[in-house]
Structure formats: structure tokens, C-alpha cells
């Protein structure tokens, strides 16, 4: 597949990106894309702030486990089905030694879904005030739409 170059004229380098995510586990591909993109941005020394809204608050539910795949699928998928929270945790740890990612979970959304006290370490339960500060401080805001 051909390699493509980014647009020619350069502007001031982006330092902070805020991502607003509303899609939860096992709904759509958006969380995976966000994590893939966040990893690439962190590699470029860009700070990433994710605000998890609505069902996205379940992505960082620490009670999710790697469940077994059905025997017929294990040759294809492996023994364990990993969950997204594990990837979030890995990206949060990247910040120890480079550009950091903050992950804020909406408190009201988490309370409604019963996951406020079940968040993985590193996920911060926050408010719309945090979202506002993310947006104010960001060079770019990427809002991933909810699918309805």
C-alpha cells in the first residue's frame, strides 16, 4: 500500500489534543481507534486528554476480565479475549516516561452505570469542569460522535 505524506505547509506543532469519547465496550470500533490514535500522538510527544462520556465510562471498569474464547475460536483468537481497559492502562503508563495521557471518566455517567467505584487505577472520575479545562487547553479537540 502506498505511503502518503501529510499536507505540505506546516503550522505550529500541536502539543495537546483533547478527545471526547462516548462509545463503550463491545459497541463500536471507536474506542480501539481512539487508543490507536492516542498511542501515535503520544509517540509524537503530544499530550492526550481523554474525557469518557456515557457508555465510554465502562471502558475503564476494572472488573472486566479476560474471558475465555470458545474452543472453536481459540486457534484464531487465542485463549483469552482481552478488554479495552487493559490497553487504556498501558497507555496511561506510557506517560511515566514521555508525553502523558490523562483519562477522565464522567462522574454522572459512571454513577448511572454503577462503575464509579470500579475504575482502573489512573482513570480519574471527574466533571464537566474537567472537560472544559481539557477543551480550553487543547490545540485540537476531537469529538467522537455517539452512534444512535
Amino acid at each position: 500500500m502506498g505511503k502518503t505524506e501529510p499536507p505540505g505547509s506546516k503550522k505550529k506543532k500541536t502539543q495537546k489534543v483533547a478527545i471526547i469519547l462516548s462509545t463503550g465496550s463491545y459497541q463500536r470500533e471507536a474506542p480501539t481507534t481512539v487508543l490507536r490514535l492516542a498511542e501515535k500522538l503520544l509517540e509524537r510527544d503530544i499530550e492526550v486528554n481523554v474525557f469518557a462520556f456515557e457508555e465510554a465510562v465502562t471502558l475503564t471498569n476494572r472488573d472486566q476480565i479476560e474471558h475465555n474464547e470458545p474452543p472453536s475460536l481459540r486457534k484464531v483468537l487465542g485463549d483469552r479475549h482481552v478488554y479495552v481497559g487493559k490497553f487504556v492502562d498501558q497507555l496511561l503508563r506510557v506517560g511515566l516516561h514521555g508525553a502523558k495521557m490523562d483519562w477522565v471518566t464522567c462522574v454522572l455517567c459512571a454513577q448511572e452505570r454503577g462503575v464509579e467505584n470500579h475504575q482502573i487505577g489512573g482513570s480519574i472520575v471527574g466533571t464537566l469542569g474537567d472537560l472544559w479545562k481539557f477543551v480550553r487547553g487543547a490545540d485540537h479537540v476531537i469529538a467522537i460522535p455517539t452512534y444512535r
Binding site: G2, K3, P7, K11, V17, L37, K40, L41, R44, I142
Partner: peptide, 23 residues
């Protein structure tokens, strides 16, 4: 239409655009 990749998207966000709209 051309094939591209996530590195291109990250580079574009890092350096190239004034506005980003995600559908």
C-alpha cells in the same frame, strides 16, 4: 482515493490542520 495509515492521521493532527471534524 489513496491508501493511508494512522501515522498519516497522527502527523496531520500534529502539524497540518486548522480544523478537525470527526464523523
Amino acid at each position: 482515493i489513496s491508501f493511508s495509515n494512522l501515522d498519516f492521521l497522527a502527523d496531520s493532527i500534529a502539524e497540518g490542520f486548522d480544523n478537525i471534524v470527526w464523523y
